[in-house]
Design a binder for these strands. Structure first.
Ligand SMILES: Nc1ccn([C@H]2C[C@H](O)[C@@H](COP(=O)(O)OP(=O)(O)OP(=O)(O)O)O2)c(=O)n1
Ligand SMILES: [Mg+2]
Ligand SMILES: [Mg+2]
Length: 834
DNA sequence: ACGGATGGCACT
DNA sequence: TAGTGCCAT
């Protein structure tokens, strides 16, 4: 398997560097970036290296920093709409990624200032240029090593050290992270949020409305930019809130389809998703329990063909292509039957047509109905059906609600094609016909109008809608053809699906509760949407009402607020993992994708080529083009990792597998546990270099390589003893998992050439790594004319480890569990005591 | 009340 | 799945 060369790049004190561009005077002097400076000088989120020298750290208050470093320059994070605005840094982060794109086409955005870069291809190319010749340090004159100052004097020394360091890092990282780089430069979600602490907690409907709107404004703005820049659209909106009473808190999140990026509509959706959390009586302008956090996030992006770039022909072509694809993928679960705003009408990926096989006809009509009334309906009802076919469509069309459905829905016979897409078009056509005049007027009588200030977007939307009416007929006819070819079952959602968990006494009770305040100020909304609210709340409140109510009913007055938890939110559907589509493209570059979509799309993927990684024809591998071969190899690694993990789990040995930063996390309890046996100093550390390698250290040992070869993966287990103390273990497990052993078990121990200690064969490789690290660390320090610290490299390694420990904002699950007051323990009490 | 804003992911 | 929780920067 090809050895990979992967780099993790992380920018130095990133926000500070960004601010340096706007405030050149902070260059070279102690500086930090703070946000919200009103309280204790604000919270520090980035510190430059000069200030670090004074002991200033992230998380400190501005005042604290000034105490440590009186001359520190504090720059504030920009504020817009009353909240911190990180746009500047996001954009700068994007700049960095763009630079990296010049060097490699496989880049994974790991954070705002970090990226993984797969240099395998680049390096291979370079090596070819050397044509087998040895690479001397002179060839690496511009190469840097962390911690070195590149003076001319030190250059040569540095490059020697580079080779050493490379060796060191190489071995340190050996086996600890074989995760492939997944090419993805864009975030998968775009969100914003704000905390409202103490006195600032949102305790009135008006405040909630105001902040929801502010967040929606920001989100909308960022989504618009994202859409034009990245040709994609988010399909879901998720709102999360934290509710607080004196004694308890709970947080919850709810999602719905995101048919429009308009801030007003996002606001309405957001409000409607959390409205049921307000337990204040309908006419009470208050909001209880108070809201301490609101977050809005948009996700589930899908490609978007801009109106200008895309034409109708492209759409047909795509449809044809996707049709052939979907015939193979039987189990697609995504679905978009929402009525998006007009501006993205070109975005309907024909692949969404396949939703028709999963959505009942009534469901289709239902969602149209809700969409056609968007301006009213959305006010209260975030139609889940726009992207998730689990909506309880019967509820909306139930007998007692049909009367409220506008005439359009009565045409459901006409619009009962099996094809969702066709239905959509028919419906849309009908919609345009019907709403030819007083569409915007319709909303004026709505009592909730006071909450949702209109702009004139509806008007323009409508105008635009009329403009492409002609295309609709064309599309419908196209779908007709498609439909006749494609005989998919058009099963309705089963009755059990619809009813499950809805009709119990709790739900009924909640229903009446929420029914009283269908909109923010407790006014009665139009009946049609009111009905829909009920349906949604039935489902939501099944879980939420108890949680919310219990925020008021603290039993132990002296205790700090406790989280309120409920059990599992419902029985998960059966997942068919095998049929899950591959989400990530691990080889192709996202940017390239935009540049030349056709090429990318026509290329066969690794998954298609080797659908079964357990049984594939290895001989094919060398025959593949390099790109594809690498992709396949990455998939194989992933597959293998997965299997190993599963296997280890079965053995109940592997609780946590460490890996690269930001990719996997290790509970801090394990990471920082000083009880972790120091056999393997880097055991719990994240490593900089990924990729399998030969164990170059084996020649230090009198053991044959075969015998001690291991996967070098680190495992940790977390146990508790009778006193509740944590006991963590670190070690290796080998290819043959049955050989897992603790050093104390002393099966097959050998003597270490370096220190003479007895050590198990399994632990030897990493033990030897430790000696290498020790030596190199000492060398480096000597070369840098640093007086060696007292103690050894081992001490240094351990010290680093400690300093990397994350400060925790709250007790972890494990800790709570160990303390005997985890959420699970208190759950029942909290729930049922009133 | 005081670590805020953001993003990804494992788990169920 | 959607929702929760945790962990990361
Ligand atoms: N808890 C955190 C951690 C980081 N960041 C932001 C500010 C940082 O500048 C940026 C990058 O985080 P890093 O952890 O990479 O820290 P720095 O880049 O600031 O410093 P370093 O030079 O150590 O990477 O992310 C943040 O807002 N909150
Ligand atoms: Mg950084
Ligand atoms: Mg970083």
């Amino acid at each position: 398997m090809t050895e990979r060369v992967v780099v993790l790049l992380d920018m130095d004190c990133f926000y500070v560097q960004v601010e340096e561009r706007d405030h050149p005077h902070i260059k070279g002097v102690p500086a930090a970036v703070v946000q919200y400076n009103t309280w204790k000088g604000g919270g520090i989120i980035a510190v430059n290296y000069e200030a670090r020298g004074f002991g200033v750290k992230r998380g400190m208050r501005g005042d604290e920093a000034r105490a440590k470093c009186p001359n520190i320059q504090l720059v504030q994070v920009p504020v817009s709409r009353g909240k911190a605005d990180l746009t500047k840094y996001r954009n700068a982060g994007k700049e960095v990624i763009n630079v990296l794109c010049d060097f490699s086409d496989c880049i994974e955005r790991a954070s705002i200032d970090e990226a993984y870069i797969d240099f395998t291809n680049v390096i291979e190319q370079k090596l070819k240029e050397f044509d087998g010749n040895k690479i001397s340090p002179e060839n690496l004159m511009s190469t840097w090593v962390v911690g070195y100052d590149k003076t001319e004097e030190e250059d040569k020394q540095m490059n020697k050290d580079l080779l050493s360091c490379r060796f060191w890092l190489h071995n340190l990282g050996k086996g600890s992270d074989s995760e492939p780089v997944t090419s993805r430069q864009l975030p998968k979600s775009i969100g914003c949020g704000k905390n409202f602490q103490g006195k600032e907690a949102l305790n009135t409907r008006e405040k909630v409305q105001k902040w929801m709107r502010s967040l929606a404004d920001e989100l909308s703005e960022r989504l618009d930019i994202d859409q034009s820049a990245n040709k994609r659209r988010a399909k879901t909106l998720t709102v999360s809130v934290r509710l607080d009473s004196d004694e308890r808190w709970c947080s919850l999140s709810r999602s719905c389809g995101l048919p429009s990026y308009s801030a007003e509509r996002i606001t309405r959706l957001g409000i409607s998703l959390i409205q049921h959390t307000n337990q204040a009586s309908p006419r009470d302008p208050g909001w209880t329990p108070v809201i301490k956090h609101i977050g809005l996030s948009a996700g589930k992006f899908e490609d978007w063909e801009g109106a200008s770039s895309g034409n109708i022909q492209d759409m047909f072509k795509k449809a044809a292509m996707n049709k052939s694809l979907r015939d193979e993928k039987l189990n697609s679960s995504t679905c978009n039957d929402g009525m998006p705003e007009h501006s993205d009408s070109g975005s309907f990926k024909p692949v969404t047509v396949e939703c028709s096989s999963k959505i009942s006809e009534t469901s289709v009509c239902t969602s149209y109905k809700s969409c056609e009334n968007t301006d009213k309906m959305e006010n209260d009802v975030p139609s889940r059906s726009s992207w998730n076919n689990k909506i309880n469509e019967q509820s909306v069309l139930s007998p007692d609600s049909t009367e409220h459905i506008p005439e359009v829905t009565k045409d459901s016979h006409e619009i009962s094609s099996k094809s969702f897409f066709k239905n959509f078009l028919l419906r849309k056509k009908k919609y345009i016909e019907i709403n030819s005049t007083d569409f915007t007027r319709e909303r004026d009588g709505d009592e909730s109008e006071i909450l949702y200030n209109d702009d004139n977007s509806e008007k323009t939307q409508k105008e635009a809608e009329n403009s492409d009416e002609n295309d609709l007929d064309l599309l419908v006819s196209f779908i007709d053809e498609e439909e006749s070819e494609c005989s998919r079952s058009s099963e309705s959602v089963t009755a059990s699906d619809k009813k499950s968990g809805v009709k119990d006494s709790t739900a009924t009770q909640d229903k009446s509760v929420v029914c009283e305040s269908p909109d923010l100020f407790g006014s009665q909304d139009s009946e049609g949407s009111g009905k829909m609210i009920l349906e949604d709340k039935d489902r939501i409140n099944k879980n939420d009402s108890e949680k919310i109510r219990s925020t008021h009913k603290g039993e132990n007055q002296n205790e700090k607020p406790k989280p309120i938890s409920d059990g599992p939110t419902g029985s998960p559907l059966e997942n068919n993992l095998l049929e899950k589509p591959v989400e990530n493209n691990t080889t192709s570059c996202g940017q390239e994708l935009h540049k030349d979509k056709n090429v990318q799309n026509s290329k066969i993927s690794a998954k298609e080529l080797f659908p079964n990684l357990d049984n594939y024809d290895e001989s094919l591998l060398p025959l593949l083009p390099q790109d594809l071969r690498l992709e396949v190899e990455r998939e194989l690694i992933k597959h293998k990792n997965k299997q190993e993990k599963q296997f280890a789990k079965k053995l109940e040995i592997l609780k946590y597998v460490n890996g690269s930063p930001s990719k996997r996390h290790i509970p801090t309890e394990v990471k920082n546990d000083s009880n972790c046996k120091p056999i393997n100093p880097q055991c719990s550390e994240a490593h900089a270099v990924a990729g399998p390698s030969n164990n170059a250290l084996l020649n230090h040992s009198n053991i044959s390589s075969k015998k001690i070869e291991s996967k070098q993966m680190c495992y940790s287990t977390l146990d508790e003893d009778t006193t509740g103390n944590k006991i963590a273990e670190c070690g290796n497990f080998g290819e043959n998992k049955s050989n897992i052993t603790d050093s104390s078990d002393n099966i097959d121990t050998v003597e270490c050439d370096e220190c003479g200690c007895q050590i198990s064969a399994f632990e030897l490789p990493e033990h030897l790594d430790y000696h290498v690290a020790l030596k190199l660390q000492t060398d480096i320090q000597r070369d840098m004319n640093i007086v060696p610290k007292q103690g050894t490299a081992k001490a240094i390694v351990m010290e680093n480890k400690k300093s990397k420990g994350k400060k925790r904002g709250r007790t972890s699950k494990a800790e709570k569990y160990l303390e005997g007051k985890g959420k699970k323990n208190q759950k029942l009490d909290v729930f049922f005591k009133r």
